[in-house]
Simulated assay, not measured.
Amino acid sequence: MSEKPGQSGNLPQVAILFSQFAAYHVDRVEAAARRLKGRAEVLAVEYATTSATYAWEPAEGIEHARHLTLFPGKSYDEVGHLARYRAAMKALRGADMVCTGVPYSERDMIALSWRMAAAGKRIVMMTESKFDDFPRNLARETAKARVLSPYKAAIVGGLRQRDYLQFLGFGDKPILPGYDTVGLDRIRQQGGAEAVRWEDRDFLFVGRFVEKKNLSTLLAGYARYRELAGYAAHGLVLAGDGELADDLKAQAGEGVEFTGFLRAEEVSKRLARSLALCLVSTEEQWGLVVNEAAAFGVPAIVSHAVGSRDALVRNAVTGYVVEPQSVESIARSMLAVSQSEQAWQRYSDATAERAHLGDTERFADAVEALFDPASEGATRAQQFWQEISET
């Protein structure tokens, strides 16, 4: 177990637990730690340094929270359930409140949540799951509601996540927004301040090349867009890699660029010079890249499945919400966003106005609200619900 020394004393301890830390996890724990400075110690806990699913770089920049890596140098998937349970119990024994973003279906998390609740800890679920992610089974959902009963509150992404937890029996338990956020200042610094000509802006996808990202339909929609736009068509950049890379490259026609996997800084630079972000997934709990695009005022074309549309995308205002299998809908949305520089600027300005909803200060609001229900953070969290409920 590795530990970065932090503050000490008799302050209450708020722990924030993840499987592993990426840059945006660091953004969140740092925002919460800054907000609670002098009132509580924030303990930032990650199980492992890497995982089989995500090629994130090891966490850096944790200065205001105390950082623990329970299994340094290891992959999360290599560590057994029992070992994870024991390590977490030991690390969290001094915490008064534990906010966990580890999947609640993991066996060790089920045991941990029940054991911590029995010990008098306040367990807070952090989740981006929503009912429409995939077909639900009533018996399974009923059992899930029982499993989740030790949790006393939740921090979620948006309205659909809130609705799903209420369906699972959260009732009057506090459910606060702000989970799916990134540090906008960090993203903007990474993107730089280079001026970009309108003619040089491209449509952009960032992510893994897997089935649920619906990239074959996106390519078909882009091909149709080129037919509609003619000589004025902008390019499409696919940034990422994955199991479908060869098939996608075989399908791609004129105007499509593949960059391969990009580091976080390179992603930010690509976003800063983009025309619009395209995320037309058939399944997408949130899609943090929409937050990152908004940091630069880059409008987004997203499918109904994308969770972040609830907060950050307003149809025909900050971008477009499309049917994921509708090639024509994707193409027409691309055409609308790219019809002129003046029209694009209106989308961009509207996007920039909503960007604050995707910033980690909203996560800090939620943590502060749970720590002190009479705080300004609690007021801002309720304002968040009001703002994203408005059409």
Rank of each mutant, 00 (worst) to 15 (best):
L70V: 01
V102D: 05
V367W: 00
G158S: 14
Y104H: 13
F71E: 03
P177V: 10
T360V: 13
G297F: 08
N137Y: 08
A117W: 10
R273F: 07
I301E: 09
L159I: 14
R226C: 13
T282M: 06
S308D: 01
R346C: 11
E46Q: 15
S19G: 14
A193Y: 13
A48E: 02
S303V: 01
W114P: 05
R197I: 03
E141Y: 10
H234R: 15
A352N: 12
T360D: 09
R39F: 01
G221Y: 03
A48S: 03
A32T: 09
G178F: 06
V290P: 08
D241T: 11
G6T: 05
A40V: 08
L148E: 09
Q325A: 14
R107A: 15
R332H: 12
Y179V: 01
F371A: 01
G157F: 03
K173A: 06
V306F: 05
V321E: 05
K249T: 04
P174A: 08
V26K: 01
A276D: 08
E341V: 00
I187Q: 02
E128M: 06
D133K: 02
I123K: 01
A233P: 00
L335K: 14
W114I: 00
I62K: 09
D96T: 10
E211Q: 11
W198N: 06
M126S: 07
Q13W: 15
A331H: 07
T351Y: 01
Y104R: 02
S51V: 06
A331Q: 12
D163H: 11
G242F: 07
Y24F: 13
A143I: 14
V267I: 09
T379E: 13
S338Y: 06
P5Y: 05
H67Y: 10
A343I: 11
S2E: 14
V210N: 04
A343V: 15
V302P: 08
Q345T: 04
D310T: 10
L236A: 03
V124W: 04
G158N: 10
S105T: 12
C278Q: 11
